[in-house]
Simulated scan of single mutants.
Amino acid sequence: MDKHSVDRLIEERYQSLSPVLQRAARYVMDNPKDMALNSMRTIASSAGLQSSTMHRLARELGFDGYESFRSVYRTWLTEGSSSFSERATALQKRSGSDEAEKLIRELLHADDAHLTQLTTPDTLASIKNASDILGKARRIYVAGLRSLFPAAFYFNYACGMFMHNTRLLMGIAGTFSDDLREGGSEDALLVFTYNPYARDSVSAVEFARQQGMRIVSVTDSTLSPIAKQSHALVIVPNRTPSLFPSVVPAMSIAQILVAMLVARGGKKSLQEIKKSEAQLQRFAVYVE
Rank of each mutant, 00 (worst) to 15 (best):
A208H: 06
V142C: 05
M260F: 09
Q22T: 09
A100I: 08
V216H: 01
P19Q: 09
G174H: 12
L189G: 02
Q50S: 14
F69S: 02
H231T: 02
R74S: 10
I133L: 14
P245I: 05
T175R: 13
V6T: 02
T78Y: 12
S201D: 12
H231G: 13
M161S: 10
G184N: 11
H114M: 12
E12W: 14
A259T: 15
T193M: 07
I226C: 04
L108R: 10
V287C: 10
K128N: 13
F162E: 06
A284W: 11
Q117I: 00
V258P: 01
L168S: 04
G65C: 04
V285G: 06
Q210N: 09
G48W: 08
G96A: 13
L180C: 07
E79L: 08
T193K: 03
M260K: 14
I10A: 03
N156H: 10
T193F: 05
G212H: 09
S269W: 11
G62K: 07
G266V: 09
A198I: 13
T53L: 06
I253M: 02
V191S: 03
S276Y: 15
V72A: 02
G135W: 03
R282T: 07
A208E: 02
D179Q: 09
A278D: 11
S5H: 05
A90L: 05
Y157E: 13
I215K: 00
T78G: 08
F192C: 02
P237N: 05
Q229D: 11
P245G: 03
M161N: 13
G171H: 05
L261C: 06
I226W: 00
L148E: 03
V218L: 00
E182R: 13
R26Q: 15
A263M: 12
